[in-house]
Every structure is written in C-alpha cells, then in structure tokens.
Write a protein that binds this DNA or RNA. Structure first.
Lengths: 195, 195
DNA sequence: GAACCCATGTAAGTTGTTACATGATTGA
DNA sequence: TCAATCATGTAACAACTTACATGGGTTC
C-alpha cells in the first residue's frame, strides 16, 4: 500500500494530473516505486473519495485535464505513514530462483542469464548516475520543485535524503553487477575445468 | 509467475506435500522466492490439472498426506522456462520511497528508519551466512538431497549455482547495511550542524 | 485436556498487469 | 493525413495476503 502514499507525497511537491503522475512514475519516481497509469487512475479516485486529495477540471485549452491536490487530511495521513515502521515484503527474486535450478541446463544458459543480469543492472546504474549528477548540479526538475515547496531551513535535508535514496540505488546496481561478474568468472572456470 | 516454476524445480529434487513445500518456502527456498501456504495449495492443484505434476494420497499413518511429484511434461515445462530471459519486475522499494518524502518529518524519524533498515538486513545477513556455512560444510539438507537426485558429473555445478545464489543474497544484505550506515553518519552530521 | 505441530483446504479482499476504448492536439 | 503525444478512463485477469475452517497426532 505504498502507492497511495507515494501519490500523496508527490502531490505535496506540486498538484498534478493523473497522466503527469503516470509519467513521473515511469521516470524518476519509478526508480523507487513504479506504478502504471491504470493503477494510478483509480487510486486517485479512491483518495478523492477518502478526502485526502481534491481535484479540479481544467479544460480551458481544449484538452480536458483534472488536476489533483493534496488536502490537509492528506498531508496528515502521509505524515503518520512516514512515521510508521516499514514492513519489508518477502524476498522474491526472479533471477536467483532461476539460478538455483539452472543445474538442469547446460552451463551456457547460466552464462547467458548472468550476462543479461549484468546488462540489466548496468542500464539501471547509468540512469541512476545520470540522476545523481543532476541532483548534484541542481538541475533535477523534481528536486528543484520540491525545494521551492518546502521551507528553506529544510533544504539540506531535502537534498540529503534524495541523494541518499539515489545512492542506495547506485550501490545496489553496482552490487548486482559485481555479483554477475563473479558468477561469469566461475562459469568460465567451470568450462575450462570441464574441457 | 515464478511460483509455478519454483514448485516444479523443488519437486525435481524430491516429491513433497503442500505442507512441506510451504515450510520450505518459509525457510531456505523463501530466501529466493517466498510463497505462503494458501498460494501454494491452489497452484499445485492447477499444476496437477495441467498435467505437470501428479499426486498420490498417503494416509497409512492416520494423517492424510498428498504427495506431489513432477511429471515428464513438468520437467520439460521447467526446462523451457529456465531457458527464457528473466523479466525483471519494476522497482518497488518501500524503504526508499519513504525516505524520499521523509523531509516532512524531523530528522530523528529518518534515523529510526535507517536503524531499522540496518537491523532488518543484519538479520537477513546472519541467516544467509549460516546457510552459506551449511552449504560449504555439506550439511545443507536441500542441497544434499538435490545432489542425490542429479547425476554426479553435475555436482560441481549444483553446488556452484547454489553458492552463487546465496552469495548474491549476502552481497545484497551487506550493501543495504553499508547504505544504512552511510545514511546514519549523514544524519549525525546534519544534527551536529543543526545544533 | 490444553497447547502445539501436522496437514489440507477455502474465501474474501487487495494489489498489480495487460489490454481495451475514446478523443483532442501537435508536428512531420 | 498520419503518427505521436496528451489525456482520461474501464475491464478482465493474475498474483498475493489475511483470515477462516477442519481435524488428527504428540507432548506436557
């Protein structure tokens, strides 16, 4: 149930439309918590029913646009969630569970999987590093907006927490890459030994 | 949809009951892919309907027990899944998404969360290290059973893959602990600067 | 006989995915 | 004019969680 709070949190930075939110959840936000358009849409409606957000229709420029804003109750709800202990979901790792049974296929299959794993996390790493650079140089759009929305004395904390969250992603991606490379070395050794 | 294949994979090691499988998925297996009893139960029934497993009722000793075994079709199905490219699910990180919005609460909340995060992964790390030791010393029960079920020339691969999967978990846990500790240092610095 | 483990199963609800449906605007 | 993007919404399904329901066996 983090989606509802991710939406509330987002809306404390700036009011936004469902479409725009879906875009953000496929981009920057999505690197911490992804959600699709068809999940965001009904959730916003539920939040409005619950009185945690309000919306206004803006159709002056032809395109109909519904802009959602967080209410005072919404902020209170978000803050009490923020204080709660995180409930860690159980581990579900689609790559490692495959690996455990990959002794049923020739070693080559394991190498292919590890190469893909490395490539996947390499891609993620590049995105995270680009974002980190944007945060450091102050051109990350979501961050500058949030700074504008939060009191100046909190700016160090706003930047620090964002940096920390991103560094976590960078560290995780690097660990996965390192792990895949260890694995590839092991595969190479096994093949040398087997030949 | 990894659950169905995790079940098939497990059953290639040895035939088992739903109850026993649920236990394993809460223990060793669960550190790669967790599933609850109430999810395993109907999935086994579906697998049987699909002809990928068969079951026999054993109620000689009073307690009724239904033992599931994988069929030849089940093995074929598992092998073709093993060869498929892994579809990585989108990122959903309940701790980091919280952190991003934690600038709305006093810094102390961030420290509490990071301490819990460290403790959580510390616990996982201890479990993983204990399992690694069991694998190295050859007393890990699932592994010895699997070795017995697989041809001798594959034993190095069986052990190697299991070790690799476990090392991935160890590395991940260590990374999360390191990250939390970095974060705690930052929090301490901020508080010193703020005071 | 109470508490706990073994053992099977069901049901209701939440969360998330994939696909469908519609229509206006912008730019090549 | 065709494709892409902006924009809102729905529906069917799959995956997962929490809670319920039942009963035998073991141990204190």
């Amino acid at each position: 149930m983090s989606l509802r709070y991710a939406l509330l949190g987002f809306l404390t930075t700036e009011p936004s439309s469902a479409y725009r939110l879906a875009q953000e959840f496929s981009e920057s936000m999505g690197w911490f918590w992804y959600a699709s358009h068809s999940q965001i849409q009904p959730e916003l409606q539920r939040l409005e029913t619950a009185g945690l957000v309000t919306s206004v229709q803006r159709d002056g420029d032809g395109r109909a646009k519904r802009i959602y804003s967080v209410t005072a109750e919404g902020i209170a709800e978000l803050e009490s969630w923020l204080a709660l202990d995180t409930r860690y979901p159980p581990v579900r790792d689609p790559e490692r569970i495959r690996l455990v049974f990959l002794d049923m296929l020739p070693l080559d299959a394991a190498r292919r999987h590890l190469e893909r794993h490395r490539a996947h996390h390499q891609e993620l790493l590049e995105i995270y590093l680009r974002q980190s650079l944007e945060v450091r140089t102050g051109v990350f759009p979501r961050l500058t907006k949030r700074l504008a929305a939060r009191p100046p004395e909190t700016h160090d904390v706003v930047i620090g927490l964002k940096t920390m969250a991103l560094r976590g992603n960078v560290m995780r991606a690097r660990t996965e890459i390192e792990w895949a490379e260890d694995g590839l070395m092991w595969v190479a050794e096994m093949e040398r030994a087997g030949a």
